[in-house]
Write a protein that binds this DNA or RNA. Structure first.
Length: 950
RNA sequence: AGGACUAUAGCUCAGUUGGUUAGAGCGCUACCUUGACAUGGUAGAGGUCUCCAGUUCGAGUCUGGAUAGUCCUACCA
């Protein structure tokens, strides 16, 4: 083995071998265990969030595989309709081509080409991360099988009246020319104005104040072209007399009825609201209540039409005055706004303009202001689908971890709105509906299916709906479509319901909830009970940068996990972060921040260190800040493991390690480390079951570094280097050394697959193990019979004595190499036994020249003292120790002990504590008080002696 | 507007059903290249657990309130 840990030298070769040997495929033995990967967007690349979640999924997968489960981790990717189409359109735009220049078919071919390129880079990254997914089952949401499932689901939902088509207000993205769902709209606070317009009252009506006009306030003046009503609050005495009267809409000349509606807030603005039912969601409802028409004034670019379009609430065209004033046709909505305001001003009808902060809805992909727009779209009735999922979470069939996320889920689910699933895009699953020339439509699995079902001869021309389905529609089927549904496959029977979904809270609504709805509707047990898609949902925190900022390309703080693994120079990192920015002016800012955060770029840390870091950060919070410092610490941990293994190998290779039997004698150190190992195994099992990856990795770190390396390896040296030690004793130590190491490797393997495999292969023979890979070895389980309380107590004593002596060395500035004589005073027979059994350990680890046991009455020389229980460990002063320094040290120790004693005695003298606290707690406090009092006595005695001496 | 979450060492974070002296990594101080490891070892410094009140024999932990921050949902034209 190399002297230092070189991750790049050992990673990679193992992955290829694992994959070639099909180790990632389900074994076919044992109970099933299945995780479906949240399919990454096929045109993206993996970021820290993916690395984080995939590490946790891989750890779970490897753990359960080793624990004997029939394990499947299903990989795949998502076609990400709008995002992908956008990327490819942007590529085309560089050559001045639009998708319309290419035509639908050619454009889609281009997207497929890009998918091939990009998809390969993702799967490459996943391999670098060590993901043990079953590549033979890789799926893509646009695969034939999955597309078939999408069609099947669409048709069945339609037949169940759970999908319908209708002309409704939707969130329209005027940039991408598509409808989007509520979830894809992000409202942000922006500065705007509140314009107050005067609407003249018709037929000579007057307000209570005697004015011949009323004032309406609006943040969107351009929508006045589509006004159909004016509303006031029924309780508003200022306007009671006007309800039922009309106003004449300026510029347009249309007459609007004044209606009373609770929706209007008396306090806000003027208390009069203009109602534009076809361009505002609230107005839509108001209009519906008052029998208004829907008056659409915009085209798909949100530019003003030459003539408005009027519909009733069933979406049927109706007769209505649709004339619009001249000069607006073709104007963009913001241009139209300016002109409207100017025209009102010119007409003397602009009452006032006030600054106003409002929430502006923007498309999460396009950033364009979303326009509520009347279009024909397809919807899923969400409520009936949501009900069973709410029950499933309520009764525990599906559990969220951490549990608090169930509240988030319920809040959304109980107030769920119908889901607009059609998108006016080219890239995606085309909607399986066909139209004839009469305006009728037919839903079916294919054109032929439709013709057959509806007796449509070849003389009837049919054209398929041009729209595609929302990406989340196909990913909502992910848990069962990947397993072969709608066919009744063996895979489905074996692995569904899956065990756990590992994902972030940001897609609970987008994906998790919808997956639950679809799965429970379509997948049923033999007795008809709906199957859940997964039994648990583990919600991971979100990864942010070291300052708590969300990682994003535009902030220039994105970290590519591969850069952490391989390292990257500062120049390359800057180049990467500033490449292809949407806003080039950010370049300097990003370069500056990057050079400040990573002046020397990033050191290569290897996959195992990265994975361990990510695991250690997986606490129960909402987000975690990724700090590269932490990664460095865990890279050192890998080096520690590496070197510990080297030590073990150097001391066992070619030696008898008991793999072929033979008597062994176990030392205290052996029994102690074996005992501790059982506790570790039990802890890890618990941490896996409750998804406490942070505690799991902390437990591993702690045991390997602070127990096994710091103490056990050191304790093995006196045995192995002792020419007089018996063969049994040496064999026992070597066997323990190598067996504990081998066990630790298996325990750590799910988190650190590469280093553990590398070391395991080189020491497996010494441990008497066979097999070609650690990843198929059994996961260690605790054996309670090996927990040895006596050994643990003895070891604590031994460590206490050694640390005590080291403490004196440290504080008295005695050279570490200087061999010391020590004396033991006031020891019990137990202390004496422990000394006899462990004299060699003590002498070696504390670097002692001699140990003298003082019986009662024996004189002790002036010395520096440490207490280990009642036992006094004395290091004689002569020639070694500064009396003043020792006095200071003792005083400090006495103060500390007195303080503690005072607190404990305070507790014990408290009447109510003694009468109300449990026996065990009181007894503990009593013991503590006694021990502290004894310590104070002893230390004060020592101090007095020194004072006499000085 | 409603709801959720967070506040612990200089920094990033653990702290399970209330019960020893509140822990880890990084950073900091001193000493040490000793035959696994300087990506290391030994010893050490550093915390009024945001604030106030309450429950309790006992609160970092439970309850109420305040302050600060983050997020989600909804939205007044």
């Amino acid at each position: 083995m190399e002297k230092t840990y070189q991750p790049q030298a050992i990673e990679g070769k193992h992955y290829q071998r694992w994959e070639e040997n099909n180790y990632f495929q389900p074994s076919g033995q044992g109970d099933s265990y299945c995780i479906m990967i949240p399919p990454p967007n096929v045109t993206g690349s993996l970021h820290m969030g993916h690395a984080f979640q995939q590490t946790l999924m891989d750890a779970l997968t490897r753990y359960h595989r080793m624990a004997g489960r029939n394990t499947l981790w299903q990989p795949g990717s998502d076609h990400a309709g709008i995002a992908t189409q956008m990327v490819v359109e942007r590529q085309l735009a560089r050559d001045g081509i639009s998708r319309h220049d290419l035509g639908r078919e050619t454009f889609i071919d281009r997207v497929w080409q890009w998918k091939e390129e990009s998809g390969n880079s993702i799967t490459g990254q996943m391999r670098r991360l060590g993901d043990s997914v079953d590549w033979s089952r890789e799926r893509f949401t646009m695969d034939e099988g999955l597309s078939n499932a999408v069609r099947e689901v669409f048709v069945r939902l339609y037949e169940d009246d759970l999908i319908y088509r209708g002309k409704r207000l939707v969130n329209w993205d005027p940039k991408f020319h598509t409808a989007i769902s509520d979830l894809e709209v992000e409202s942000k606070e922006e500065q705007g104005s509140l314009w107050h317009f005067r609407y003249p009252l018709a037929d000579g009506a007057k307000t209570a104040e005697g004015k011949d006009y009323i004032v309406v306030a609006t943040t969107r003046p351009e929508t006045m072209l589509g006004d159909t009503l004016v509303a006031v609050n029924p309780e508003d005495e200022r306007y009671t007399n006007l309800v039922g009267k009309e106003v004449e809409l300026p510029l347009v000349g249309r007459r609007l009825k004044i209606v009373a509606d609770d929706y209007v807030d008396l306090e806000f603005g003027t208390g009069c609201v203009k109602i534009t039912p076809a361009h505002d969601f609230n107005d839509y409802e108001v209009g519906k209540r008052h029998g208004s028409v829907l008056l659409n004034i915009f085209d798909q670019d949100a530019a003003v039409l030459a003539e408005a379009e009027a519909y009733d609430y069933q979406g049927k065209p109706v007769d209505y005055d649709t004339a619009l004033p001249a000069g607006f046709a073709g104007l963009d909505r913001f241009e139209a706004r300016k002109k409207i305001v100017a025209d009102f001003d010119a007409a003397g009808l602009l009452d006032s303009i006030k600054d106003h902060t409002l929430m502006v809805p923007r498309g999460d992909r396009s950033d364009a202001v979303i326009e509520p727009w009347l279009t024909d779209q397809w919807y899923v009735s969400a409520k009936p689908l949501a009900e069973p999922t709410i029950k499933a979470v309520e009764n525990g069939d599906i559990q969220f971890v951490p549990k608090q996320w169930e509240n988030t889920f319920f809040a959304w689910m109980r107030d769920i709105q119908d889901w607009c699933i059609s998108r006016q895009l080219w890239w995606g699953h085309q909607i399986p509906a066909w139209y004839d020339n009469e305006g009728s439509f037919y839903v079916g699995r294919s054109e032929a299916d439709v013709r057959e079902k509806h007796n449509l001869g070849s003389d009837v021309a049919l054209t398929q709906d041009e729209d595609v389905l929302d990406t989340w529609f196909s990913s909502a089927l992910w848990t069962f479509s990947t397993l072969g549904w709608p066919d009744d496959t063996e895979m489905l029977k074996t692995f569904h319901p899956t065990d756990v979904l590992v994902t972030g809270f940001d897609i609970i609504f987008f994906w998790v909830a919808r997956m639950m709805m679809m799965t429970m509707h379509f997948i049923k047990d033999d007795d008809g009970k709906p199957q859940v898609p997964f039994k648990q949902v583990y919600i991971t925190p979100l990864i942010r940068d070291e300052n708590g900022q969300k990682m994003s390309k535009s902030k220039g703080n994105v970290i590519d996990p591969i850069d952490l693994i391989d390292g990257i120079s500062a120049d390359d990192l800057v180049a990467k972060r500033t490449y292809g920015l949407m806003q080039p002016k950010l370049e300097q800012k990003i370069e500056k921040a990057t050079r400040k955060a990573f002046p020397d770029g990033m050191e290569p840390s290897g996959t195992d260190a990265l994975r361990f870091t990510l695991t250690a950060m997986a606490s129960q919070g909402r987000d975690v800040n990724f700090d590269v410092k932490r990664l460095e610490g865990y890279r050192n941990f890998c080096n520690k493991i590496w070197n510990a293994a080297r030590y073990v190998q150097m001391n066992t290779e070619g030696e008898d390690c008991g793999q072929n039997g033979g008597d062994v004698e176990l030392t205290l150190a052996d029994r102690w480390i074996i005992s501790g190992l059982q506790r570790l195994e039990a802890d890890l099992e618990r941490y896996y079951s409750n998804y406490r990856f942070d505690l799991m990795s902390q437990a591993l770190y702690e045991f390997i570094w602070n127990e096994y390396c710091d103490w056990y390896l050191e304790l093995s040296k006196p045995v192995l280097w002792d020419d007089n030690a018996s063969a049994e004793r040496k064999r026992g130590t070597r066997r323990t050394l190598v067996r504990v190491l081998e066990t630790l490797l298996r325990l750590a393997h799910p988190v650190m697959p590469f280093i553990t495999e590398e070391i395991w292969l080189s020491i497996k023979d010494l441990a008497g193990k066979t097999g070609d890979t650690i990843m198929l070895q059994p996961y260690p389980r605790a054996d309670e019979t090996k927990i040895d309380a006596t050994a643990e107590a003895d070891a604590e004593w031994l460590k206490g004595v050694i640390v005590g002596i080291r403490n004196i060395r440290g504080e008295m500035n005695i050279a570490p190499g200087k061999e010391l004589p020590v004396l033991f005073q006031n020891g019990s027979s137990e202390d004496q036994r422990r000394l006899q059994e462990n004299e060699t350990f003590l002498k070696t680890l504390a670097k002692l020249e001699s140990i003298t046991w003082l019986n009662e009455g024996d004189d002790a020389p002036p010395a520096s003292t440490q207490l280990v229980g009642q036992l006094k460990v004395l290091v004689p002063l002569a020639g070694l120790i500064d009396v003043a320094a020792e006095q200071a040290r003792l005083s400090k120790a006495i103060d500390k002990a007195k303080q503690d004693l005072a607190r404990v005695e305070g507790k014990l003298s408290n009447e109510s504590f003694v009468s109300k606290a449990p026996e065990a707690v009181i007894a503990k406090e009593r013991e503590k008080a006694e021990a502290l009092a004894a310590s104070v006595r002893e230390l004060e005695g020592q101090l007095t002696q020194l004072d006499e001496l000085g």
